[in-house]
């Protein structure tokens, strides 16, 4: 992995312990392979999907509710069957996974960035800034992500011109999710920063008059990245699930270009009827994806969590 890296990030990953632990756990290897496979096939979906589920002209209502190919009434052109609109489920899942992964990645990335800055500032500077940031965190934690989603949706709709509303849903979901994740990052970073800043090396840097910004970025940041990486991984799964939940609550990605969450929300209607495949396969995909990521998160935690070393 990063054995020859000279950077200061993730010192833990550099020692052979991480790689050793990785090799020693078939579960982690399996998870990594699954995650890699899913992510790459999702990103390549326009190339490998048998149909284009986003092109309405290619969708025929008369093809709706065809069961998976191995069923009696199945058709080989629709391997996992079709949904209620006649959309090929396999293609929809591939495209949907891509959307979900983008949502997870971007929202967690934004949350980590925001949380890092806020947490570092709060933990290092303390005093008024700490109080202020932590109260903002308190306020943020009060609002369920559905309220945040509705708020952002409403505000952006009234501010942006109509032509730009089309792509809005994705942005709204990402913002809502990252807003509901960043407080956790900020709290963790703040706590670690408070511990780190009393360590001798930071004290020493302060004594020789290094500016606070440099100290934060060069000395403290690398040392709080471990827990942040763990939180980020776990929240990647949480964000993907959160997208599905927001969809269930009615503020999701539109059904014409569905995400995994939207597919599950629609498929949910067919849970009691015979057409369970509509929800089964998107559900399995989601569960497998999140599970793989969580297992990787576990491994990261084992490797990076100072408590366990």
């Amino acid at each position: 992995m990063t054995s020859n890296s000279t950077g200061r990030f993730l010192p833990a990953l550099r020692d052979s312990d991480a790689w050793h632990k990785f090799k020693g756990s078939p579960l982690t290897i399996g998870a990594a392979i699954i995650a890699l496979l899913m992510i790459s096939s999702a990103l390549l979906s326009p190339l490998i999907a048998p149909h284009d589920p986003f092109d309405p002209r290619a969708i025929d209502l008369m093809n709706s509710l065809i069961p998976p190919a191995w069923h009696e009434d199945g058709q080989s052109s629709f391997l996992l069957g079709t949904d209620d609109q006649g959309r090929d489920l396999l293609s929809a899942i591939l495209y949907g996974t891509r959307t979900s992964i983008i949502v997870g990645f971007v929202s967690v990335g934004a949350a980590v960035l925001l949380g890092l800055v806020a947490g570092l500032l709060a933990g290092y500077l303390g005093g008024f800034i700490d109080g202020f940031i932590m109260r903002v965190v308190d306020i943020q934690m009060t609002f369920p992500s559905i309220m945040v989603a509705l708020l952002i949706d409403g505000i952006s709709r009234s501010l942006l011109p109509r032509e730009q509303h089309d792509q809005l849903a994705l942005v709204v979901i990402i913002l809502a999710l990252s807003l509901s994740i960043w407080p956790q990052v900020a709290r963790t970073v703040r706590a670690s920063t408070m511990v780190e800043k009393n360590r001798e090396y930071v004290q020493a840097a302060r004594v020789i008059g290094r500016p606070a910004g440099i100290i934060m970025v060069k000395h403290i940041l690398p040392n709080v990245m471990g827990p942040v990486l763990v939180i980020a991984t776990i929240n990647f799964g949480v964000a993907i699930l959160g997208e599905a939940t927001l969809s269930f609550l009615g503020v999701g990605i539109p059904a014409s270009e569905p995400s995994l969450g939207t597919l599950i929300r629609i498929g949910n209607n067919f849970l009691f009827s015979g057409e369970r495949w509509i929800v089964l396969y998107p559900g399995l995909t989601l569960a497998l994806l999140v599970l793989a990521i969580n297992l990787l998160g576990d491994w990261l935690r084992d490797v990076l969590d100072p408590k366990l070393r």
Partner: peptide, 9 residues
């Protein structure tokens, strides 16, 4: 959604 798909034809 179905009507949208029909109009697209």
């Amino acid at each position: 959604l179905a009507i949208a798909n029909m109009f697209s034809k």
